[in-house]
Each structure stands twice: as structure tokens, then as C-alpha cells.
């Protein structure tokens, strides 16, 4: 199967300016050399703690932020260098669902205006067809037609998230970046939205890049899971494999830290020392060596390259000196 999305050595650095002349004094390496592929209709989960660069990665892929380097190939075309006019046309193929259902909808526009805006922008169909399409999309996300004249503030978080999903679906995208789509929702509503996303994927063959800090949610929706730490993808494996056989010491610690909702199974916890270093001056060598319980002297000297430790047909890539 050919890849829908191929990300090669993607980098996004933010300059830090300082001093009187506002010269660039440092670089925050939010995303620093990330590569992966995503096949059509599959879901790649992306986990990591705040500041690891997972949201920036999502935005750099959609070119909501211009990458500093590397390539983003969507159906073979490099989004990173596409001129603006062609980029607008490519936006039909890729969409985003946001975390905060209160900030992601324009407060002074009706639900119908919000959902049809993508159709208006790209000049799809006649006005009547667009109006019909809005109703169709509302139905897909499980909302009544009557809500279309209402304003976002009249809805609960879960319903707003459905409206945001309808907007993302309007252009029939092939790829959706979902950035913490259920983090702001309550438990009972969260499973409704997760099931909706799963249904859309099943029925419409949309590929998802599912970004979340919540490992249990990622485990539930993803085919593959990538773990990020300080701008780097430290491990990438099929979901079941990653959760049952984590190889990178950071992944192990992360998995052991999740509170288990079962009082009889107290987790054996790997407690990490210290805090995540600042992405402004990440440690030399392996970014994780300062907190790694298994660190070797060599880890502070060279950056580990991803190696495949999986079985044939089930690639499992890990960037750690323990496996090189």
C-alpha cells in the first residue's frame, strides 16, 4: 500500500530573540527531525508530554506553521515548499480538529455558516447544494438539522466538538489531524466523540493523525503509536506492540505512570528523575539521557538514530543506544 502521508526529517525551530537589536539568540527546536509514514485510512497516535512538540508537529504537517526544514509529502506532493495558491487548493485534502471546542468556533457565526465556510471558500457546489451538504454533515455527526441557525455558545463541549468535526469533514479530506480532540471533554461525552471518530474512519477511509497526552485514548483509536520527547520521535510501533512491549526507556516510564483505573492492580512505577529539559538548549546526545534510568556514558555523546527492532512486516522503530 502506498503512503498517503510521508514525513521526512521534519524540523520546526522557533527563533528566540533577545537583546536591544532583537537578534536571534537561540532556537527552540520544537520539532527536530521527525520521520514517519501514514497509510490511507489508518490512524497514527502521537503521544508525549506538554512541550514535546506534538502539536507543533501537527501544525507543521498541515503547514499552519511553515516548517524550518524537511519534507511533508501528501500524495507525493511536498507541502513544505508548495506555493500559497496551490497550498490553498491542497487544504481540501487535509483538515484539523482542535482541542478546545470553545475557542475553535467563531463566536459570532451560526453553525450553518461555520460548517459551510470551507465549501464557500473552495467554491464547491451551488448555494442550495451547500445548504443541503450542511444538513447532511450535521446528520453524520449526530446533530439535528434545527441546530444550524444557532450560535456556538448555545452548545455543550461535546456538541461543539461535533460541529468542529462536521466542519473538518465538509471538504471530504483524506487526512485529519486531531489535536487533543477529546481532552477537554468529560468522560461520558468523550467516548461518544471517540466512537464518532472511529465510525468516520471506518466508513470514509479518512487517515487520522491523533495527537493526545492521554495514552489510554491513543491506545483505543490508533493502529500505530509514536512517542515524542523533546521534539524527537523516540519510538514508533503498532499499537498493541508498543503497549505490551515498549522498548524505549521513556515509553516504559510513560506507560507505567498512567493511573490505572483499577484499585487491585497497583502499577509498578518507574519514577523519572527531574524535569523535562528546556527545548531551548536540549541536552547533547540522546535528549532523554538526563532522566533515563538506563543511561550509558555514551548516551550523552551521540544522538541515537532510529533502528528497527520489530519483526518482518511489523516494523518497530526505536531511537535508543541500547538497541544499536
Amino acid at each position: 500500500m502506498s503512503a498517503l502521508l510521508e514525513v521526512r526529517d521534519l524540523r520546526k525551530h522557533f527563533p528566540v530573540r533577545g537583546g536591544l537589536l532583537r537578534r536571534v539568540v537561540a532556537q527552540v527546536k520544537a520539532v527536530d527531525g521527525v520521520s514517519f509514514t501514514l497509510e490511507a485510512g489508518r490512524t497514527l497516535g502521537l503521544v508525549g508530554e506538554s512541550g514535546c512538540g506534538k502539536s507543533t508537529l501537527g501544525r507543521a504537517i498541515l503547514r499552519l506553521q511553515r516548517p524550518t526544514g524537511g519534507q511533508v509529502l501528501l500524495e507525493g506532493r511536498d507541502l513544505a515548499t508548495l506555493p500559497p495558491a496551490e497550498l490553498i487548493a491542497m487544504r481540501r485534502e487535509m483538515q484539523i480538529i482542535f482541542q478546545d471546542p470553545f475557542a475553535s468556533l467563531s463566536p459570532r457565526r451560526t453553525v450553518a455558516q461555520i460548517i459551510r465556510e470551507p465549501l464557500d471558500v473552495h467554491g464547491i457546489g451551488t448555494p442550495e447544494e451547500r445548504a443541503r451538504r450542511v444538513l447532511e454533515l450535521l446528520d453524520v455527526v449526530g446533530m439535528r438539522a434545527a441546530v444550524q441557525d444557532r450560535y456556538p455558545h448555545e452548545f455543550s463541549g461535546g456538541q461543539r466538538q461535533r460541529i468542529g468535526i462536521a466542519r473538518a469533514l465538509a471538504l471530504n479530506p483524506k487526512l485529519i489531524v486531531a489535536d487533543e480532540p477529546v481532552s477537554a471533554l468529560d468522560v461520558s461525552v468523550r467516548s461518544q466523540v471517540l466512537n464518532l471518530i472511529a465510525k468516520l474512519q471506518r466508513e470514509r477511509g479518512i487517515a487520522f493523525l491523533f495527537i493526545s497526552h492521554d495514552l489510554s485514548v491513543v491506545r483505543h483509536v490508533s493502529d500505530q503509536v509514536g512517542v515524542m520527547y523533546l521534539g524527537k520521535l523516540v519510538e514508533l510501533a503498532p499499537t498493541h506492540e508498543l503497549f505490551t512491549n515498549p522498548r524505549h526507556p521513556y515509553t516504559e516510564a510513560l506507560l507505567s505512570a498512567v493511573p490505572v483505573p483499577d484499585p487491585r492492580r497497583k502499577a509498578k512505577r518507574i519514577v523519572l528523575a527531574g524535569d523535562v529539559p528546556s527545548p531551548m538548549n536540549p541536552p547533547p546526545g540522546c535528549p532523554f539521557h538526563t532522566r533515563c534510568p538506563k543511561a550509558l556514558p555514551y548516551c550523552s555523546q551521540a544522538v541515537p538514530q532510529p533502528v528497527d527492532v520489530g519483526s518482518p512486516g511489523r516494523p518497530h522503530s526505536v531511537a535508543c543506544h541500547l538497541y544499536t
Binding site: E49, A257, P259, R269, D275
Partner: peptide, 9 residues
């Protein structure tokens, strides 16, 4: 964050 949450808890 998850790892900090576990420590603090």
C-alpha cells in the same frame, strides 16, 4: 503531565 502527575500523586 503524566509522568509528573504520577510522582505528585
Amino acid at each position: 503531565d503524566v509522568t509528573t502527575q504520577a510522582q505528585v500523586l
